[in-house]
Simulated scan of single mutants.
Amino acid sequence: MKTIAFYGSSLLSSYWNGAATYYRGMLRALADQGYRITFYEPDVLDRQAHRDIDPPDWCDVVVYAGNAQGLRRAATAARKADIVIQASGVGFEDDRLLQQVMANARDGAIRIFWDVDAPATLQALRDQPGHPLRAVLPHLDMVLTYGGGAPVVRAYRDLGARDCVPIYNALDPATHHPVPAQQRFACDLAFLGNRLPDREARVAEFFLSAARRCPDQRFLLGGSGWAGLALPENVRLLGHVPTADHNALNSSARLVLNIARDSMAATGFSPATRVFEAAGAGACVITDAWEGIEMFLTPGQEVLVARDGADVAELLTSAQGNAYGRIGARARARLLAEHTYAQRARQVDTLFARQMMHERAGVLL
């Protein structure tokens, strides 16, 4: 059995951790492909106090202390794995962790950097010629990314990566699916996302301005960090929404809004986990406009696209409201047919198998 040591922010908690859905869907599907996986996550940012799931039976989880000694012990464990992966955005000494993890990987192991926020990482690399990742990239076997398409692939190759392959977000139908609506989440438009500097202005434009334009509509704002923000009277603040409640939220709202962060919207080809979670639950999704959406869902038929808050308000008050349920159903059918984590895992398995063949050929030579 092939073994993976995966270093990421958290598998157990989605608290200030938007990658949780992606990790869970990808790694569960890879386990189904026959991989034995150990996930290493630091005890930082109060995530362990906000766990969404117990340690699963398809992945071992090691929670290490958020200090130099804990990092060193976790990095040393990399030598036991056939495939060593570090994700971006771990949350504690990421650069030092990457250096130590890859230094501890044994000869012949596949070394991978898995970037779950490629636009931000690439901007940091452009701004910092001495960034530690620049020195590590040429020694890695490949970079995998959460999204970004051809622009991200070109950028990573230009920086010295041997290869870069986008592994897009997807649907895990065992986790995200339609459930009965719940009154506590009843609303006309729901948005779920943490308050981040490069998202806040877009939330103000696409969500809050739409709420002000539609005073008779009900809005729900979920996610961490929004407390203290001045909100219109028709917006109800939920705070952190555990992943166990995502299906109920998405199944109860008349429409669900996705808002990309600045860098992801500018780069394009970066569908957020929220799109797949909501559409997987059968919700009709409104997304802000970004290049590449048609690779995943067809605008107007499987997803609604808004250029600004005025567009969102128009969709909310449209006489076509009866069509929204059909749009959500078509979106779910499209994702089940073309965009599941099982399909993504087969893609990753093929990449790993090809790289292992190269490693063996190198040994034989």
Rank of each mutant, 00 (worst) to 15 (best):
Thr3Gly: 09
Ala5Leu: 06
Ser13Asp: 05
Tyr15Gly: 07
Gly25Gln: 10
Asp32Lys: 15
Gln33Gly: 04
Ile37Ser: 01
Pro42His: 12
Ala49Pro: 01
Arg51His: 01
Val61Met: 10
Tyr64Leu: 05
Tyr64Asn: 04
Asp95Ser: 15
Gln100Ser: 13
Gly108Leu: 14
Phe113Ser: 07
Ala118Met: 12
Pro129Ala: 13
Pro132Trp: 11
Leu133Ala: 06
Val136Lys: 02
Leu144Asn: 06
Leu144Thr: 03
Thr145Val: 08
Val153Phe: 09
Pro166Ser: 13
Asp172His: 09
Ala174Asp: 14
His176Pro: 00
His177Ser: 08
Ala204His: 12
Leu208Cys: 01
Ala210Pro: 00
Arg212Asp: 00
Arg218Leu: 05
Phe219Arg: 05
Leu220Met: 02
Gly222Leu: 01
Pro232Thr: 08
His246Ala: 07
Asn247Lys: 02
Ala248Gln: 03
Asn250Met: 15
Arg254Phe: 01
Pro271Val: 08
Ala278Met: 04
Gly282Thr: 09
Val285Trp: 04
Val285Met: 13
Ile286Tyr: 10
Trp290Arg: 07
Gly292Pro: 11
Ile293Pro: 03
Leu297Lys: 10
Ala306Thr: 10
Asn322Asp: 13
Ala323Leu: 12
Ala323Thr: 11
Gly325His: 14
Arg326Leu: 12
Ile327Trp: 05
Ala337Trp: 05
Thr340Cys: 09
Arg346Gly: 09
Asp349Gln: 08
Thr350Ser: 10
Phe352Glu: 02
Arg360Lys: 08
Leu364Lys: 12
